[in-house]
């Protein structure tokens, strides 16, 4: 377990909103790297965790994602609750598309309920149900304006992760 380097903080950052995660009024929180995973953890727990050796420690706090071997950062579904609070671009899907999405499929135009105005193309977005429950995140295939012209079977948002992964990838998720 170690703190992130400056480079890692830049790569793995979720934008300016990282400030909200670090600068919390209730309790000091920090990011820690364990093996290749980045965890968001309260300082009290982090200090307790120093007594566990590197090989023995499986997980602490909330896993935000992992660094790939090529040095890119891959967000995990476990970070969804925090990301959803600060999301700039959102997509809401209709109830009939929820199950399809939760099984790992892309979001089709037919299932698209609402989308944030002026969302650009290839923009990371958070996906919600119509009742504002976050389901996962993805990348837009088309901008908001282009989405209007699409036919119903065309893909609007590419699937990245969804809460179904809590069941599917239970072993490697945390």
């Amino acid at each position: 377990m170690r703190p992130l380097t400056e480079e890692e903080t830049k790569v793995g950052s979720i934008g300016r909103n990282i400030a909200h995660l670090i600068d919390r009024p209730d309790e000091p929180y920090c990011f820690r790297m364990q093996k290749d995973r980045v965890y968001y953890v309260s300082e009290a727990i982090m200090k307790k965790a120093t007594s566990v050796s590197r090989d023995q420690m499986l997980s602490l706090g909330v896993c935000f994602g992992k660094f790939t071997k090529t040095g890119k950062f891959r967000l995990h579904i476990t970070a969804l609750d925090y990301l959803a609070q600060f999301a700039k671009y959102k997509v809401w899907i209709k109830p009939n598309g929820e199950m399809s999405y939760l099984y790992g499929n892309h979001v089709l135009k037919a299932h698209l309920g609402r989308i944030t105005e002026d969302t650009p193309e290839h923009q990371g977005v958070i996906i919600y149900t119509m009742g504002d429950v976050p389901l996962g995140f993805g990348v837009t295939a088309k901008s908001t304006a282009d989405c209007r012209k699409l036919d119903p079977t065309a893909i609007c948002v590419f699937h990245q992760t969804d809460v179904g992964e809590y069941l599917r990838d239970e072993d490697t998720l945390f």
């Binding site: 377990m1 950052s13 300016r16 990282i18 670090i22 600068d23």
Partner: peptide, 19 residues
């Protein structure tokens, strides 16, 4: 691993400001 939280916060806030 156990640097003071305030120091770490300052460093990360500076990065957050930049990005």
């Amino acid at each position: 691993t156990t640097i003071p939280a305030a120091a770490e916060k300052d460093a990360q806030m500076r990065i957050a400001e930049k990005i």
